[in-house]
Design a protein around this nucleic acid. Structure first.
Lengths: 201, 201, 201, 201
DNA sequence: AATGAATGAGGCTTCATTCAT
DNA sequence: GATGAATGAAGCCTCATTCAT
């Protein structure tokens, strides 16, 4: 349609398109088997063309991660927008993650897969970015007194570990009821941080 | 006969040695980058020699997993031996895992890494094997009434996710106090399953 | 479009070039020793490049066989074109094979070599394909009464065995007069199938 | 039985045993896949031990060939012993080969397989050894006038090609009636060399 | 006479990367 | 902006061969 348009935007569009193709391939085959050939063929271009848009494979993978992490964070924040107070926000967070997996499984699978690769020798700042929003909720809860006293980092790691590990299991067990599981996780961590579960009463 | 026995012992020794080298390489570089070259050079032999002791890379990796999973299970069982009752057993389990990471970090790293690869390409039974002991405790706790009512699989997944994810973080944050973290996890899940924490009282 | 056509042509050219190189190597060294390294070095490219044009070694070998079998069949059919009647056709066939060996020895050597490997690991249909044209002539000769009564398959196997075995001998005995040998074979089998030899009278 | 005997004969026995094992493996798997490992394991010894008895793989293969070719020649000579006159001898020869294939298929398969490997870069004298007895019959037939005039080498090559090619086909077509085929070959070549077939009249 | 362990060369294959066009 | 062709390093694996014991 816009084939004749020569704008800088075209470049960006193309990058995003390639990233999207990469996400799909990664979600289906895993990072290791997501070769540039595979991605290129999914995008119906040639391997060489990828290098016009990305310096190397790593840069493409980074773009994939940034994209999916960004979208994921956006989705979760949306879900948390209506929740006021740390307890509700924690619940929203824990239910949002499985919901995201339901709505955009490719994104989540790709995010986890790439993150796993990145972990060895990857950017430690990335990890903090994932923990930060959780810890913020926890800290606020302790400040307001709604939450009990517990080591924040340990609790955050438990929460993150629980969510991070979910996509793989869900992929292998398509019968898992993600909504129910999300609620169960919310209950579990609500009781862990507050000592009781209001909503189930 | 003696010759056979003696040489069988040698052979077994050699296999174990190679497995140990593989564990170290995997713990340091991850499964993907643990090439046979790398492992061979760590063992100060040639690549070809590996094939004298193992049919395949896969067979070596399987041996690695069997070894580390066996040692890990042994260690955790030892730690749980003194604990009676589901509450105590759950605490023992959750404290034992970080302790194992402290004592034999390579084993744990290799175990998680290999398990991740195995699960991608494979054996769903493995996953159940990891969840089974956890779920057994949870079921018993619910039966005796010590534990609240919650979906067992969800709780087990949370526990497993928490532990499975720990080695990576610990590797990137050597300053993490694993003993304290183990206690925190035990507290957290004890409160989640029982509604309160006895030992902190 | 032109670009596609032109490049498809290039691609095909390249494939044919590689096939030709493979034919030469196979003719000289045999299939077993015709490694991709050897073929690549003959083609003055790298091993890796072969995989750009062929999926694997087997595909290259298949292309070799298709090529030489096609050319060989073409040549023999050409020679048989002028011959009418089973007796003349049989003679044409038997003289054409040594002639082909004279004109394109590499082709014939490669064909026999690859066929031998294929048959070991494989395709029984190939064998029937080689026997079919011979048996057709024999059947027709018996139908018209020009040929005596004999078991067709046995006669065909004798003819095929005679030709199949010739390239090896010819390679080791460059002094063999292939034209004369072809005539001798034609005489021999003509007498075998008709009881007499017309042309020698 | 003779385990305690320490004679030079032991060595020879062992060699023969290994050769026999090699024959079986080659007959079953072909020369290429008849690795020393495979042969050793068939012989229930170790690879290393083979090198005590043979300098290298080639020497073992040579011994295999010598053995099977010797036994084959013996068998054929036995069968030809009762035949007097070139016509009868030729018939005996041509019927003996398929008979040998029936009685000792492993020998024949191994012989052909090894010969095929030897052909590229092998001993040319070997080939003459196979042709000599055929040519002797043919020459005698021409001398006595029983046989027509034809180029001896060409006829011998046809006969050898026919027989040499048979084992492979027979292996792929176990339903082939070897006795009938032998008779057919004898008829065919008898007519080719004499112009008629006495025995079928 | 033989074994067990290892070597080292060579084989096939995959893939990120480069580059002329 | 993109393609097609190629490179080269690395990976896994096989196997004849060697050698101390």
């Amino acid at each position: 349609m816009f084939l004749t348009v020569r704008s800088a935007g075209r470049d960006e569009e193309r990058r995003e398109y390639l990233v999207q193709c990469a996400i799909e391939v990664i979600a289906e085959l895993g990072v290791k088997r997501a070769s540039l050939s595979e991605i290129a063929s999914r995008a119906a271009i040639t391997k060489g063309a990828i290098f016009y848009h990305f310096t190397n494979r790593k840069e493409l993978l980074d773009a994939v991660f940034t994209t999916v992490a960004g979208r994921g964070a956006g989705f979760i924040q949306e879900r948390m927008a209506g929740a006021s107070g740390p307890t509700a926000r924690l619940r929203a967070y824990l239910e949002a993650f499985p919901a995201a997996l339901l709505i955009a499984p490719n994104d989540i699978h790709a995010m986890i897969a790439v993150a796993a690769e990145h972990e060895l020798g990857g950017d430690p700042a990335l990890e903090e970015m994932a923990l930060a929003p959780i810890e913020e909720i926890l800290r606020e809860g302790q400040r307001t007194g709604e939450f009990l006293d517990f080591p924040i980092r340990s609790m955050a790691l438990a929460i993150r570990g629980t969510t991070e590990t979910l996509p793989g299991y869900a992929a292998r067990h398509p019968d898992l009821d993600l909504t129910a599981h999300g609620r169960a996780l919310a209950d579990l961590f609500e009781r862990a941080v507050t000592g009781t579960v209001a909503h189930n009463g």
